[in-house]
Amino acid sequence: MAKRDNTSTDIELKRTEEPSELLRELVAHLRQNRTQLREEWVVRISETRLLTAMTKEEIFAEATSVYDSYVEALETEAFEALQAYARNLSERIIPRGVETHEVVGIVLLLRDVLARSLFAKYQTDFKKLNRILDAYEPAANRIANTVAVGFVQERERVIRQQQEAIRELSTPVLQVRERLLILPIIGVIDPQRARQLTEQLLRGIRTNRAKVVVIDITGVAAMDVTVANHLVQTVEASRLLGATVIVTGLSPEIAQTLVTIGVDLGKMNTVGDLQGGIEQAERLLGYKVASITEPN
């Protein structure tokens, strides 16, 4: 009988201390000690030399809003709001040069600072401390995860945007004279850039009514089979629009590679350098190239 009673009080006790209840208790604790804990956190941030790109005041301001959002996420478990906040935060700090390890670092620091304060508060009641940590840890880890993922996604978005901008800049289609386009390609060509380049060139052919295109690849360091095939496709697609392509600046190394990997160079009209390419283009367009030795 007595035993039974014991069991029932145990169950009751557990019921009053469901994780959400415990979370509420610890949120209250974190709110009460906000000023002190936040200060401690900021000290730890500068000790660990994180966020060095930001001033003390900036760090304090960000720390305040991160702290409040953190506690709020613990309380409401509404991670959409935290996600939005993380994106917003990242948008602000990425241009300042804040790195991924710094963002992950400060969130983990906050997690630890808060965990330590829980240790201090419940040190006399080990069982309670354990239950509190059981509630705290998964929530805290999820917050750290959400913020880190949010930051990385935002960073990737920024990088994609920049790549896009660089690509636009790095593939100019130039009209040298009527009906003649020059496409100087510089740098590394990946499949995505190759495609953009082709689309830009095809549109350029149409708008400029080009009949001859000189693609100069002097500035291309290396070419693999995928990129080489793109080049062949670009030549073929241009022909479908009625334009002839001349490829210039093919280095001996690249020529060697292309032959080795079996790219059909026979489909390509190649001339040694850009100057020679333009001269041939002009012949194709029916311009007379002034040359004394050329019989006519």
């Binding site: 095809l202 496709q233 697609a237």
Partner: peptide, 8 residues
């Protein structure tokens, strides 16, 4: 142009 790209 877009058709030519798809064709190749």
């Amino acid at each position: 142009p877009e058709v030519a790209f798809a064709m190749v």
